Simulated assay, not measured.
Amino acid sequence: MQKVKIPHKVDPVRAAAKKLDYDGYIPRDKLERLAGVVETVLSDAEVRLSFSVDLQGLTVIEGSAGAAVKCECQRCGDPCELGLSADFHYTVDEKKARDLGLEDDYDFADLDEFGELDIYNLVEDELMLSLPMVIMHPEGECEMPEGGVYGKIVTENTESNPFAVLGKLKKS
């Protein structure tokens, strides 16, 4: 099946009534907020979306997204390529989901004033949330920084008493 460009906005209630599925991409130049967080967005975001109505009558958006980005490794400072991926489950029926006690099962998607869902923002949010807290190369792939070490604590003071330094300052 040929991948197509994902529409920017969709009416999720109509899409769920029709049980629409989208398998496509979002162009990388449209991922502006993600580009502001990483050094470079290397690929288009591959997106798979399914709209449906669950057994409780909630409008559900399920899907996955993935993209490749380049960031700076926090350990060595060199560029680091990452593959981001995210799976998500949303509903637009927040009140009904809360009344049924299903707020832990779904995230809630906000609709605009026309009742449409901004898919680009939703996917971009999910990709940004999938970024690791500390971006690093896999263990063993980092270049050792000049004069630096990692994994060991280097101390110049070898005295056993941690307050000995204060005693030296007091004598000065």
Score class of each variant (00 low, 15 high):
residue 86 A to V: 08
residue 121 N to S: 14
residue 137 H to V: 00
residue 120 Y to F: 12
residue 147 G to M: 05
residue 126 E to D: 15
residue 121 N to G: 12
residue 111 L to D: 11
residue 147 G to N: 05
residue 54 D to H: 01
residue 28 R to D: 13
residue 16 A to W: 02
residue 163 F to K: 09
residue 98 R to W: 02
residue 61 I to R: 00
residue 39 E to L: 13
residue 26 I to K: 02
residue 159 E to L: 12
residue 77 G to P: 10
residue 25 Y to N: 06
residue 17 A to M: 13
residue 162 P to H: 01
residue 77 G to R: 00
residue 48 R to F: 07
residue 7 P to R: 01
residue 115 G to V: 07
residue 170 K to H: 12
residue 141 E to L: 11
residue 96 K to T: 06
residue 26 I to W: 02
residue 13 V to F: 01
residue 150 Y to G: 09
residue 87 D to P: 05
residue 161 N to W: 05
residue 81 E to Q: 11
residue 148 G to K: 10
residue 122 L to S: 05
residue 126 E to H: 14
residue 79 P to Q: 06
residue 9 K to I: 14
residue 4 V to Q: 14
residue 120 Y to I: 06
residue 58 L to I: 02
residue 27 P to N: 07
residue 111 L to V: 10
residue 85 S to R: 12
residue 122 L to P: 09
residue 16 A to R: 00
residue 93 D to F: 00
residue 48 R to Y: 07
residue 102 L to I: 00
residue 88 F to Y: 09
residue 12 P to D: 08
residue 6 I to Y: 03
residue 15 A to P: 07
residue 89 H to K: 14
residue 155 T to I: 12
residue 151 G to I: 07
residue 68 A to F: 08
residue 63 G to M: 04
residue 130 S to H: 05
residue 134 V to S: 10
residue 140 G to L: 09
residue 148 G to Y: 02
residue 47 V to P: 08
residue 162 P to L: 03
residue 93 D to H: 00
residue 86 A to P: 09
residue 167 G to I: 05
residue 62 E to A: 13
residue 36 G to H: 02
residue 8 H to K: 13
residue 43 S to V: 11
residue 20 L to M: 10
residue 48 R to D: 07
residue 163 F to D: 12
residue 39 E to S: 15
residue 101 G to D: 10
residue 172 S to L: 15
residue 57 G to Q: 00
residue 57 G to E: 00
residue 31 L to Q: 04
residue 25 Y to G: 08
residue 64 S to W: 03
residue 133 M to I: 14
residue 128 M to P: 10
residue 56 Q to I: 01
residue 76 C to V: 09
residue 23 D to H: 06
residue 13 V to I: 14
residue 157 N to M: 06
residue 107 D to I: 01
residue 8 H to W: 04
residue 102 L to Q: 00
residue 110 D to V: 10
residue 161 N to R: 11
residue 148 G to R: 05
residue 169 L to M: 14
residue 50 S to D: 06
residue 121 N to P: 05
residue 89 H to N: 14
residue 163 F to V: 11
residue 159 E to C: 03
residue 52 S to K: 06
residue 1 M to T: 15
residue 138 P to R: 02
residue 18 K to F: 08
residue 132 P to Q: 07
residue 116 E to K: 06
residue 150 Y to T: 11
residue 76 C to H: 09
residue 109 A to I: 01
residue 98 R to F: 02
residue 5 K to D: 12
residue 36 G to S: 10
residue 85 S to D: 15
residue 151 G to T: 06
residue 24 G to I: 08
residue 80 C to H: 01
residue 135 I to Q: 11
residue 146 E to A: 12
residue 68 A to P: 01
residue 40 T to Y: 13
residue 11 D to S: 12
residue 99 D to Y: 01
residue 104 D to K: 07
residue 71 C to E: 08
residue 43 S to F: 06
residue 76 C to T: 10
residue 149 V to W: 07
residue 64 S to I: 08
residue 112 D to K: 05
residue 121 N to A: 13
residue 11 D to A: 08
residue 140 G to R: 12
residue 31 L to K: 01
residue 169 L to Y: 10
residue 139 E to P: 13
residue 60 V to G: 00
residue 73 C to Y: 08
residue 151 G to V: 07
residue 83 G to H: 11
residue 97 A to Y: 01
residue 170 K to D: 14
residue 6 I to D: 08
residue 133 M to G: 09
residue 30 K to T: 13
residue 39 E to Y: 05
residue 64 S to F: 03
residue 135 I to R: 07
residue 134 V to Y: 05
